[in-house]
Amino acid sequence: MAWQWFHRLGSPRWFYEKTGRWLVWFAPITIALLVIGFTWGLAFAPVDAKQGNSYRIIFIHMPAAVLSLAGYYLMAIAGGIGLIWKMKLPFMVMKSAAVIGVAFTALTLITGSLWGYPTWGTFWEWDARNIFMLILLFLYLSIVLLGQVYPEQEAADKVCAILALVGTVNVPIIYKSVDWWYSLHQPASIKFTGSSSIHPSMLYPLLLCIVAYYCFYTLSLILYTRQEILAREARTKWVAALVEPGTENRVKG
């Protein structure tokens, strides 16, 4: 009986209808959190003593970095569930997470280099975290591209899941080795991590931004997955019923 419940969780239609109801209140909350977090961080948090106003990009940059990494594991876990229990929905979530992951890592890299210019005087520094984010972008891209070039959807899902799972073993190794490489080559550079403390007046808006980003990530994941469901289930009766006149506006959601 418990398994029946679990398999209903894997049904695209169930997900589509359930999230359709959630979105009504979840989307406004996410937008509100983002607006409050950004306004607080960008306009009201105090100016940094060393970096001036340029540090404020941390409110956009840092939560994106956190989610890029967390998203990789979410993607791999979704792929693993799809492989083990042979369900369709987790694969759709996996694909959505890969595409969104590309966007978030790209955002992290871009904001990082914008922040790097006033701080280090260059847009690209061979910094451990920079390189790691770039590699993470490659990992996401390889999964998105592999999924697109495969002729058969089911096969594409399975191979992407295998690649994502092998990637999870590798991500910590890549992280550690890049970090190690960096410590060998740049012994005397500025370190932001570690003991440098952050004043509560900056920390609270940062925490709020992280929460807002988590909501934003979830929201985009839900929206993309819903779109993916419609595309893949286009031939089923329940999607056909959605597309009938009078209900088009729901389909776009």
Binding site: F138, L141, L146, N170, I173, V178
Partner: peptide, 9 residues
Amino acid sequence: LVVMPLYLP
């Protein structure tokens, strides 16, 4: 593209 990031370490 698939193999390169995994070769890095």
